[in-house]
Amino acid sequence: MFTRTRRYSETTFIFLIVSAIAALAACSTSNLPLPEDQLRAQALDKSLICPICPGETIDRSQVQLANQMQAIVREQVEDGRSDAQIRQFFVDRYGERVLASPPKEGFNLVMWIAPPVGITLALLVLFLVTKSMLRQGPTPALRPSNASSEHDVDLEAYLELVDKELGERDDPPPPAEKPDTEGTA
């Protein structure tokens, strides 16, 4: 009984796997015979933005326009057009915003140059600040000395005054106090 159940579950599992693979194959929009053409088409899909769903490339977007763009990409790959020609086809129609990564020219150069320059500058500043902090030793607040800031200097002076007064009080009381206490009693 147990082995039979197990066999059933194995069969079900295999059936599910095969169905999933078949479903994936059926969903695939690719009808290109050559595997390298399919890879090219997939790479092109990833490089083109769906114009009505900003930020999503046509390989991810589920809208009709993205599917139609994918179909055009495959048609043109099959016709032997180059990647640059296919991308230009869409740029001519939708402008440069259809490209997932902007071309390396004009104002777009800023987008290519800014991140590495920014990171390099940030690392440089971090390095310089760390270096100057190390050269100066621990920050004043962490120093064992009590006189570490202007505020503490005031406090120090005040504490000194308190110590002085307390020290005076610890001394034997002056004899002049005696007649006073007698007078009040």
């Binding site: 114009p51 009505i52 009709q64 326009l65 599917n67 139609q68 763009m69 179909a71 055009i72 869409f90 129609r93 939708y94 402008g95």
Partner: peptide, 13 residues
């Protein structure tokens, strides 16, 4: 039907 005309005119809406 195939969406080619919309794409040729760069339609987004």
């Amino acid at each position: 039907t195939k969406g080619n005309i919309a794409i040729d005119y760069g339609l987004t809406g």
